[in-house]
C-alpha cells in the first residue's frame, strides 16, 4: 500500500466510523424512518442462530442464510414492516418504548472494491453491544460481531448487507423487537 492508498484508507475508515455511529444514533433516538433510508433497497439483514458443536464440526455452528431458520432473515420490505409495527403505537412489546443504546466498537475495514481511493463497496467488521432497558427493570444486554457491506450510492454510504453474529445459544431475551 503506497502513501496515497494509506491516506485514502484512513479517510475511508473515518467516514465509515462516523457512518456507523450516526446509524447507531438514529436507532437509539428512535428515528426509524431515517434509519431505513440508510439501507440499500436490496439490503440483506441476517442473524443466524448458533449451535454448540464440536471444534471439528464448526461449519455447523451457524444456521444457514436462506436455508435454515434464523433469528432474522430480512430484506428492506420486512424491515420496513417491523418499523411500521413499532410506529402503530400498539405493538405492546415496544409500548412503552424501550430505552436502547447501541455501542459499536472494534471497527475494521476488511476490504474495499475496487480500491481504497474509489470504493464502490466496503466490507466492515465490528463488535456491537446492544443494551435494552424497558418498563421498570427489564434489561437485556446483547453482544456480538457484525459484518457489514456498505455501498456508495450517489456519494452516500448505504448498508447492503448485514450479518449479525450474536454471542448466545439460548436467546436470553424474550423477544427481538429492536434492530442490530
Amino acid at each position: 500500500m503506497d502513501g496515497n492508498e494509506r491516506i485514502s484508507r484512513l479517510l475511508l475508515k473515518q467516514e465509515v466510523d462516523e457512518f456507523l455511529y450516526y446509524e447507531a444514533d438514529l436507532l437509539d433516538a428512535r428515528r426509524y424512518d431515517d434509519w431505513l433510508a440508510l439501507l440499500a433497497d436490496d439490503v440483506r439483514y441476517w442473524m443466524p442462530m448458533r449451535r454448540n458443536v464440536k471444534v471439528d464440526d464448526l461449519e455447523r455452528e451457524f444456521t444457514r442464510e436462506g436455508r435454515d431458520i434464523s433469528w432474522f432473515d430480512e430484506g428492506k420490505q420486512t424491515l420496513t414492516r417491523r418499523v411500521r409495527q413499532i410506529q402503530t403505537g400498539i405493538h405492546w412489546a415496544e409500548e412503552p418504548v424501550s430505552r436502547i443504546s447501541h455501542v459499536i466498537s472494534n471497527i475494521r475495514l476488511l476490504e474495499a472494491n475496487p480500491s481504497w481511493a474509489e470504493p464502490a463497496e466496503v466490507a466492515v467488521g465490528c463488535r456491537f453491544l446492544v443494551y435494552r432497558n424497558r418498563v421498570e427493570t427489564e434489561t437485556d444486554i446483547l453482544v456480538g460481531k457484525r459484518e457489514d457491506l456498505l455501498r456508495r450510492v450517489e456519494g452516500e454510504l448505504k448498508i447492503t448487507r448485514r450479518r449479525i453474529l450474536l454471542d448466545q445459544n439460548v436467546l436470553l431475551s424474550k423477544n427481538l423487537t429492536f434492530f442490530f
Partner: peptide, 11 residues
C-alpha cells in the same frame, strides 16, 4: 423439519 431449533427464555 427445517434446520435450526429456536430456543429462548421468557420470564
Amino acid at each position: 423439519i427445517l434446520g435450526g431449533i429456536q430456543k429462548w427464555r421468557i420470564p
